[in-house]
Amino acid sequence: MVTAMGTKVISIFDAIGEVSYLILKTMVALFTPPFRFKDFVKQLNFVAVESAPVVVFCVSFAAMVTIIEASFHMKMVIQNDAMVPGFSSLLIIRELGAVITALLVTSRVGAGLAAEVGTMQITEQIDALKMLGIEKIRYLVVPRFLACVIAGFTLTIIANLVCLYCAMLVSQFKLGYTFGNFLVGMRTFVQFQDLVFSSIKGACFGAVIPIVSCYYGFKCKAGAEGVGLATTNSVVTSSVSILILDFLLSWIFSFFY
């Protein structure tokens, strides 16, 4: 049992070392030529543009649920939901927009990425790249990394705006607060730095997705089961990492208030 635990601990440290190495190599390749602009644009289209409809659709419902639930609980506890527009908009901007967007992008893009890189790994395409003198990290990871960071940043801003708009609609038609009341409430609670921190969170979450997905893709074992496992591990690890990173960033940002 002690041996098994030791092996597990060693494998965890191995994985941390490998992910750190992947991050380091990605950072070096990100700032040194040759740059793969065409691949980056293609990935940006896939990650940002093609993810936008599903992100907009899902976050709008999440925002509506948030404001309805907030109103329900405030009425129950303090018999008054006057602060709901302010609280909801603060919650939306500081957490909901960035986190839900990141989790949606993880399930859509991260799973696809791990499957794509994993398939390349087991069908020897990555070995073929090496034989042709192409660095796998520069060719596969860097364009996806950059695309996911920019997509995380922009999709979070879009998600925040859509969430606020949907919350305003619910506030107007269900709770009886006009758009004006909502904006005044929001102005009281929300500061400009909340918007900035939210976008930074989005970019950081975006960075997690390609690193984790490519890591599991590169480690993919042969066969359909191997690709399936790489995909599952990638989505689970990315989601958990995003939530832990969310806590760490929220804690760090709390020093700026």
Binding site: T123, Q125, A128, L129
Partner: peptide, 16 residues
């Protein structure tokens, strides 16, 4: 070294 060596893999390994 790899420029000197060409390798035909077990899988076709073509870029999809």
């Amino acid at each position: 070294i790899r420029k000197k060596c060409g390798m035909v893999f077990q899988h076709p390994a073509l870029f999809d």
